[in-house]
């Protein structure tokens, strides 16, 4: 009994060494809206993200209020009028790599991946798919992905008065550098 317990503990220890979780609290998500009238971009450096290298599951979470715009007034409108960030303070993605066999977390390199999962913005949850790359460099893992978000899909309405300044579809870029979780 005692030896089986010991081997179980050993197994769990080995498993957790062989299949680490990677985490970051300093991930970056930015978005870009382009119209002939005005280009708008905003950056968020406070993204928490995790990857489970054994299952290919991954999750991102971001606070709407910490997107930084060039102009304070735009930031205010984004929070108060479009994203209603008091009511919906965060956006999340949770999903998995659909081709996890393509990524070798123990060998340095650039691996193209496909990802599917659920994106929640403005309180609306939608299934999405995207492509990206995972870069392995020693113990550091970097994920990069760019995808499009249609504002109407997430019930984000743009008043007619500023409709020609804000694109109906914005480009979202995710760039996260992870370390093995302590």
């Amino acid at each position: 009994m005692k030896s089986s317990l010991l081997s179980l503990t050993l197994l769990i220890t080995i498993a957790s060494f062989a299949q680490p979780m990677y985490m970051t609290r300093n991930g970056q998500i930015s978005f870009y809206s382009k119209t002939p009238m005005e280009n708008i971009d905003a950056v968020n450096n406070e993204v928490t993200a995790m990857i489970n290298s054994s299952t290919g599951e991954l999750a991102f979470a971001v606070l709407i209020k910490s997107f930084r715009f060039e102009r304070a007034l735009m930031e205010e409108h984004f929070n108060e009028n479009y994203m209603e960030s008091d009511k919906f303070p965060k956006a999340t993605f949770s999903g998995k790599i659909t081709n996890p066999g393509n990524v070798n977390f123990n060998t340095n390199g650039n691996y193209p991946v496909s990802v599917e999962g659920e994106l929640t913005i403005h309180g609306v949850k939608k299934s999405i798919t995207s492509t990206g790359t995972i870069n392995i460099s020693g113990s550091k893992v970097t994920t990069l992905s760019t995808f499009l978000v249609r504002l109407a899909d997430y019930n984000i309405s743009i008043p007619a008065l500023v409709a020609d300044k804000i694109s109906e579809t914005v480009e979202v870029k995710v760039n996260c550098e992870y370390q093995p979780k302590k």
């Binding site: 928490t48 979470a61 971001v62 606070l63 209020k65 910490s66 303070p89 965060k90």
Partner: peptide, 8 residues
């Protein structure tokens, strides 16, 4: 700014 896994 709110709460993810940490307070930010």
């Amino acid at each position: 700014k709110g709460f993810l896994s940490d307070v930010v």
